[in-house]
Amino acid sequence: GEVECLVEPSLEGILGEGKLQMTSKLKSCSGSSFVDVGTVWWEAADFTALCVLTASETSVSLWRQMDDGHWAVMHTWHFNKVLVIQIIPLPGVRSLVCVALGSLEIVEIRFLFHSSEGDSVTQSSVKAGKIKAVLGLRKRRLVTSCGSLRDQEVEVASFSELGRSNERQTLMPPEETILAFADVEGMQEALVGMTATNCLVVWNLASGQLLRKMSVGCSYPASVCHRAYADLGLLFVVLSHPHAKESKACGIPAFQVVAINPKTARSATVTSLSLPLGSEGRYLEGEVRDASAAAVMTSGTIAVWDLFLGRCTAVLPPNSEGKWSLVRWSVTDTCLLAGQNDGSVYIYSYT
């Protein structure tokens, strides 16, 4: 099994406006590394709490902080035939976990539950196929793209509080492979997708119409769109470039904010977010939540940026145990989960 431990709070990672303070450390006693981490509100007969999720290739565990401050594993779901690739956050959903399974690409998406009857953990398959991209949307919906090019199928599935599938709606596919989705803050019925050739597509979720396909005009291949914001008649998108060539590493920002006019399909870079002078490395992986972006850099450092200020607000260098490999925002957005390859997850408050 897995063990818990609590580390005394200490102050780390201060730079300019942001403050990262470590509050807890969770450690898998098997020492196997986590492929993903996350948070979920969990309701049970005897507690309601914001819990931490850790995913290794063969299991997903739900951790709860006990009254004395220690963390304990409440439930573990095991996977024998397919590996866990990622946890899929579901905005506003409680007591339900969504995971993507597969090897090189996602082949199945499952919901994970805990049944009070017999105290058992259960799983149900939501979608199977060659899944290229998936995103959990508000109002208990999940959007997926399967296949590629002309055979592509883009679908929004809605589900009940118990995770049962209610209805499925097809979105008109673009004639390019979708590699990432992002919902649009400020415009609930809009959804954007990023294609393999760096085109941004916009759908109307209510009608399923494909409204626009626009080039975002950046030179890095297979950029990822993390988030979109609709304001003042423009779409602002936050992009990262995990597949940019190493040789260009010095000049590649971790994130870029690009403004797009959907009426004319013209775009312009608003700001480029890079590490402060003296820090090295390029973007490895990261997450954007509200107006904050966090990334693990190839140097093993975590950096946090404020998208409104347009600058790096905190840097968390590798600690004495090793380099960082994962970073995720908590659903409360004032906490950051930071993972290392030895199966450790550190919880930081971010203010």
Binding site: E189, V202, R212, T264, A268
Partner: peptide, 23 residues
Amino acid sequence: CSDSDLGPISINWFEELSSEAPP
């Protein structure tokens, strides 16, 4: 970026594109 870089901006772009796009 300036408005001239991006062309004329419409606050109602979502509704306008929805009325123009094929169903």
